[in-house]
Amino acid sequence: MCLAIPGQVLSIAGDEPLLRQGRVAFAGIVKAVCLAYVPEAQPGDYVLVHAGFAIALIDEVQALRTLAYLAGFEPEDPR
């Protein structure tokens, strides 16, 4: 079974699409992530990350709900 974790892109380095790296925050932990599979990602976006690669863009509500579920409690509605 594979697990992808949502994180927020803080910054992006590199202009070459296959070599773009992002600093991504996961509930306070920041990691370098390859952005080759999501070339449209921008700082502030939420991405799903598996094995060091961002594999999809997701919306903020979905990301926060997933993080809350993984933390073991129900999220508040951000609206």
Rank of each mutant, 00 (worst) to 15 (best):
L18K: 14
P43G: 07
T66I: 13
C2M: 07
M1R: 10
C34Y: 08
A63R: 02
G7L: 04
A4S: 12
I58L: 04
D77H: 14
R65H: 10
G44L: 00
K31S: 11
A36E: 10
G72N: 11
G22S: 11
L19C: 13
G72L: 09
C34I: 07
L70T: 05
L64V: 07
L64N: 11
Q21H: 13
H50D: 03
Y37D: 12
A71C: 05
V47K: 02
M1I: 09
L10P: 05
V9S: 06
R23L: 15
A54H: 02
A51E: 10
Y46N: 02
Q21E: 15
A54G: 03
L19M: 15
R79K: 13
T66H: 05
P39I: 02
A25H: 06
D59L: 11
R79G: 15
Q8W: 00
L57V: 03
Y69Q: 07
L35C: 08
A27N: 13
L10R: 13
A71T: 02
L64A: 05
G44C: 01
A13F: 15
A71W: 03
R65M: 08
V49L: 03
Q42D: 01
G52L: 08
G72H: 08
P6L: 05
V49T: 05
P39V: 02
I55H: 05
I12C: 12
A27M: 12
I58T: 03
F73G: 08
I29T: 12
A25D: 14
V38K: 00
F26P: 01
L48I: 01
G28C: 07
G14F: 13
G44N: 00
Y69L: 04
D45H: 13
Q42S: 06
P17Q: 11
A54K: 03
A36L: 03
R79N: 14
P78E: 11
E74K: 14
I29G: 01
A32D: 15
P43D: 05
Q42K: 06
V33W: 05
A4H: 03
Q42N: 05
A36R: 14
T66S: 08
P39E: 02
A54N: 04
L10V: 12
E76Y: 09
P6H: 01
Q62Y: 05
L67P: 01
Q42V: 02
